[in-house]
Design a protein around this nucleic acid. Structure first.
Lengths: 208, 208
DNA sequence: ACCTGAACACCGTTCAAGT
DNA sequence: ACCTGAACACCGTTCAAGT
């Protein structure tokens, strides 16, 4: 059969790049390898991303935040925030290799602006006002991105001496070890989420 | 004068690498450039880091968590956690270029183990038990790393369309804009910290 | 407009060689 | 033991050229 390739497009390039990162890691995302995956010379990518690899990486991060998460507005304000938090965690956890990009590249797309607006609205419905709303959203967002960061980071084995011997110098860590192995990550995320939402609610009572 | 260089050492290499990252960013940390900074051929570094650049990057992350943060044990348990949180934030904020490494490379050194143990002890003193302690520490740690991640990320200008026009589609964002510009980051961090600690305390009452 | 081929400056890393 | 020099395979990117 002839080489009737579907035409190269920004979207196809981003999809292939995402696939490459998921499968082999960010370090192996290379213009040449990406070209191979698309059955095209590496230089062809520059025609769709004239600013080069940096722009492509920005595109990946935007891609991750492209579809906005918005719960039905009639539900409880805390439940709406919970829905966003779960969806965001799932999304990031699905592409752990992108985390280093996510924490270093700011994105302001209609999707992210809409998501933030929805969070503000939820907090407003919860009785928060002014700076308390900003603090609440920052706290929640911080918790979520931080939690998934810890999850992704600790999924890799640590290379620090491999000193697994939790000796007598760490009595609490030793005592908690049995709980640690059995703790379900989803439950833990929910517990922290509950804690944060509880604390956020209290922000209304104690303005800074 | 003769070339009486102080001998190359792991510590000197890491210090130079950290300096390079702080000054020029992670992308410009290169074995050859690092060699130049140390007035040595790049290949000399491999004698002190036989596993190459990956090991060097791990070393940088360890370096960041090297000095443990431990508050006086007699102070209030929440205040101890606050002290740790502030110190950790300061430390990470001092080297924003390392953040991508920090979220992707786990570290288990005596210093980090000691810090975790101190956090467990504080939560225990606060009346938490078992899984609630694990959840509390994870939640707090997640918040702190997430908050600084957002700070560092948003310090760079976003490249998404530069659509600054907060139009009528985002009424809350528009209304909150005046507060947003004036909000002190330190105050906001403290507000979130208070919220998280409040929520954490409630974890004792509502075990999962 | 869209892609290719060759070229350039720069990587990380190896290996034999120097001292 | 500690560092150098040359070499290898691989990067991102430019640019003239093809169609």
């Amino acid at each position: 059969m002839k080489k009737t390739h579907t035409p190269l497009t920004r979207e196809r390039i981003l999809a292939a790049a995402l696939h490459l990162v998921d499968a082999q890691g960010l370090r192996r995302l290379t213009m040449r390898r990406l070209g191979d995956a698309l059955e095209v010379e590496a230089m062809a990518i520059y025609h769709h991303f004239p600013l080069g690899k940096e722009a492509l990486l920005d595109g990946l991060v935007e891609h991750l935040s492209a579809v906005p998460v918005t719960a039905a507005p009639e539900t409880d304000w805390q439940e709406r925030l919970r829905t966003w938090a779960r969806a965001y965690r799932d999304r990031v956890a699905a592409h752990p290799g992108l985390l280093p990009l996510l924490v270093s590249r700011p994105v302001r797309t209609p999707a992210t602006l809409a998501a933030t607006e929805a969070q503000y609205a939820a907090c407003h419905d919860g009785g928060l006002r002014g700076p308390a709303i900003l603090d609440a959203v920052r706290t929640l967002t911080g918790y979520v991105i931080g939690f998934v960061s810890l999850e992704i980071r600790d999924a890799r084995p640590a290379n620090g001496d491999a000193a697994e011997g939790l000796d007598a110098r760490y009595p609490h860590a030793t005592a908690l070890r049995s709980y640690a192995t059995g703790r379900d990550p989803d439950d833990q995320f929910e517990a922290g989420l509950t804690a944060v939402l509880t604390g956020i609610t209290a922000l209304a009572a104690h303005p800074v």
